[in-house]
Amino acid sequence: MRLEHVSRLARPFSSASAPSPVAGCGAHLNPALEQLCGEIDAAFAAAEAHPGASFGQRVRLALQRAIADPRVLRPDQRASDPQNYCRHLLAADPLNRYAIAALVWEPGQASPVHGHRTWCGYAVIEGALEETLYRWDALGHRAIETRRHPRSSGAVSYVDAGRGAIHRLGNPADAAARAVSLHVYGVAGEQIATHVNDLLAA
């Protein structure tokens, strides 16, 4: 099999959280995840063959197609945690180039303000999220809020590593229901809780 299927539930996110032990492993990825992985593999191949090719655009399109398939997540991969948002690790590239996860957000749950140590993309599968964007104030050593955007079901985003795309993502406290998003990060599966976010003061 081309990919390691981990399908595990990590502890709810905090700045000090680490992945929990694998709770169970399946033998195969579902067709939607297999296609997503194949398209990300193809994006890497295209970027290597043609350095001018848009890797980010290919990842965005792959996520857009993945969330259109109702089979992309099982019900247990949409499970939430009442204390904080949680991350279900779905698949990890054996070459350690990327990992795929589902994030589940109850109303009022949000990420910390962060930049990115790696490229990453996400798409909203269920419900709606709110994304708050920031700019980095190098003199004040803090992130300054610039604007907020609703991210409804079907929204797709991609950013490169660095502090040029600082944000906070969450499910508003007055939301009527949970939200679920699908994320791809440019890290190995075991690094998904530790090597993605560059936590910043705001």
Rank of each mutant, 00 (worst) to 15 (best):
L3F: 14
L3R: 06
E4W: 11
H5Q: 13
H5V: 11
V6I: 14
L9S: 04
R11L: 05
F13H: 07
S15M: 12
A16K: 14
A16T: 14
A18S: 15
S20R: 09
P21Y: 07
N30R: 14
N30Y: 13
P31W: 14
E34R: 15
Q35L: 13
C37G: 14
G38H: 12
I40L: 10
D41L: 13
D41G: 08
A42I: 10
A43Q: 14
A43S: 14
A46I: 06
H50F: 15
G52E: 15
G52N: 15
G52R: 15
A53G: 08
S54W: 14
S54T: 12
S54E: 14
F55H: 14
G56M: 06
Q57V: 02
V59L: 05
R60T: 07
R60K: 14
L61S: 06
A62H: 12
A62I: 09
L63R: 08
A66K: 05
I67Q: 09
P70V: 07
P70D: 15
R74L: 09
R74V: 01
P75V: 07
P75G: 09
Q77V: 00
R78I: 04
R78V: 04
S80Q: 06
Q83V: 11
C86D: 02
L89P: 00
L90I: 06
L90C: 05
L95V: 00
L95G: 01
L95F: 03
N96R: 15
N96T: 04
Y98P: 02
A99I: 02
I100T: 11
I100S: 09
A102L: 07
A102W: 04
L103Q: 02
L103D: 00
W105V: 00
P107E: 13
G108F: 13
G108L: 13
Q109C: 02
A110C: 12
S111Q: 08
S111E: 07
P112C: 06
G115Y: 11
H116W: 08
R117H: 08
T118G: 08
W119P: 04
W119S: 08
C120H: 12
A123F: 02
A123R: 01
G127V: 03
G127L: 04
A128M: 09
T132D: 10
L133C: 06
L133S: 09
D137G: 06
A138C: 03
A138S: 11
R142K: 07
A143P: 00
A143R: 01
I144E: 14
E145Q: 15
R148Y: 07
R148W: 10
R151H: 08
R151Q: 08
R151K: 13
S153M: 11
S153W: 02
G154W: 03
V156R: 03
G164H: 15
A165E: 10
H167W: 05
R168D: 07
L169Q: 02
L169M: 10
L169F: 05
N171G: 01
A173W: 15
A175L: 05
A175W: 03
A176N: 12
V184N: 06
G186M: 03
G186V: 03
G189Y: 09
I192L: 13
I192C: 10
D198R: 07
L199W: 09
